[in-house]
Simulated assay, not measured.
Amino acid sequence: MAKLNQIIAVEKGVRSKAQQDLVTAHQSLQKPALLAGISRTYQPKDEEGEQLPPESTRVQVQAEDVLRETAATLTRLFDVTATKDWANCTARADVVVEGRTLLTAAPVSYLLFLEKQLNEVNAFVRKLPVLDASEAWTQDPSTDAWRTEQVRTLRTKKVPRNHVKAEATEKHPAQVEVYYEDVPVGYWTTVKFSGALPARRVNEILTRIERLQHAVKFAREEANGAEVTDERAGDAVFGYLFG
C-alpha cells in the first residue's frame, strides 16, 4: 500500500504529463487535414480516353481515439489527486514541542498553513525593537516601561569676560579682548525610558518559534507517512463524460 508522501511526490509529474498530453491532443484535433480522408477513381468517357490511377488519403486522426487516449491520461491524474485529497482528510499528526503536545491530530492542510504562518511570525519577531545594549535597563512598574538610572549632568552657560591686553594711556584707550567662559548654572537629572524589548526576550521567542517550526515539519512528515487507499475517481468521471 502506498503512503501519502509517495502520492504527493508523483502527483506533480502526473499532472505535468496530463497537461502535455492534453495540449498534444488538442493540437491534433485542430488540424482538419489529419481528420480528413478521401478515395476516388477515374473513369474515362470512352475506351480511348486517358486512364488515371485512383487517389486516396487515409484518415490519420480519429477523434474518438483521441477522446479515449485523453480519458486514459486524465484518469491517472484524477485518481492520483483523489487519492491525495481523500488521504488528506484523514492524515493527521500531533504537534509536540519539548514533550508538550500543543496540537492534537492536526490535519495536513493545517500543518502546511502553520508552517507558512510561522515563517511570517519569525520575520516579524526579528524586526522587534531591542533595548540599547549600552544602557543598564530596569522595569519601571509606574510606567510599564523600561528605564535607566538617573544621570546627573552639569548645565553651563557662556558668560562674556573682558581681558585687558593693554592699559589705557593718555594717548591710547585700553585694549580689551572679549572672551566667553563656561560658567555652571545648574544640573540636569535625566532618566531614559523605552518600550523596546531586551535582546534576551527576543532571542527566547525566536528559539521557541524555531522549535515549533521543527515540530510542525516533523508532524507534517509523520502525517504524510500515512498509508493511503487508491481512489478510482477517473473511471467514474470519464465513464460518464465520454461513455
Rank of each mutant, 00 (worst) to 15 (best):
Arg232Tyr: 11
Lys12Glu: 14
Glu177Asp: 03
Asp132Gln: 02
Gln213Ile: 04
Ala223Asn: 03
Arg126Ser: 03
Asp140Gly: 03
Arg40Glu: 15
Val151Asn: 09
Gly239Gln: 09
Val80Met: 06
Glu11Ser: 15
Leu206Glu: 08
Ala168Lys: 13
Glu167Ala: 10
Glu231Pro: 05
Asp46Cys: 06
Ala219Gly: 06
Gly234Trp: 00
Gln139Ile: 09
Trp137Thr: 00
Ala136Asp: 10
Val121Tyr: 08
Thr73Arg: 11
Pro32Leu: 06
Trp86Ile: 12
Pro141Tyr: 03
Asp235Glu: 14
Trp146Asn: 13
Asp144Cys: 07
Asn203Glu: 15
Tyr110Cys: 01
Thr101Gln: 12
Lys192His: 02
Thr190Glu: 07
Ala72Thr: 11
Lys3Val: 00
Gln19Ile: 13
Pro173Lys: 15
Val10Ser: 08
Ser134Arg: 04
Val80Tyr: 06
Lys192Cys: 00
Val61Gly: 00
Arg232Pro: 06
Thr229Lys: 08
Thr75Asp: 12
Asn203Val: 10
Leu103Met: 13
His163Gly: 03
Ala91Ser: 13
Gly195Ile: 08
His172Arg: 15
Leu67Asn: 14
Arg232His: 14
Gln30Met: 14
Phe242Asn: 01
Glu149Lys: 14
His172Lys: 14
Val125Phe: 06
Ile205Cys: 12
Lys158Pro: 10
Ala87Ser: 11
Ala133Pro: 09
Asn119Ile: 08
Leu103His: 13
Leu114Met: 11
Glu149Cys: 04
Asn122Val: 03
Thr75Pro: 05
Arg201Asn: 11
Asp46Met: 05
Ala9Tyr: 04
Arg76Gln: 15
Glu98Lys: 14
Arg92Cys: 07
Gly225Asp: 08
Val202Ala: 05
Leu114Trp: 04
Val183Tyr: 04
Lys84Ala: 06
Tyr187Pro: 02
Arg92Thr: 14
Arg200Trp: 09
Thr153Val: 13
Thr229Ala: 10
Gln43Arg: 14
Tyr240Gln: 09
Val237Tyr: 12
Glu231Cys: 06
Leu35Tyr: 00
Glu115Lys: 14
Val108Ala: 03
Leu35Met: 07
Arg161Thr: 10
Val10Phe: 02
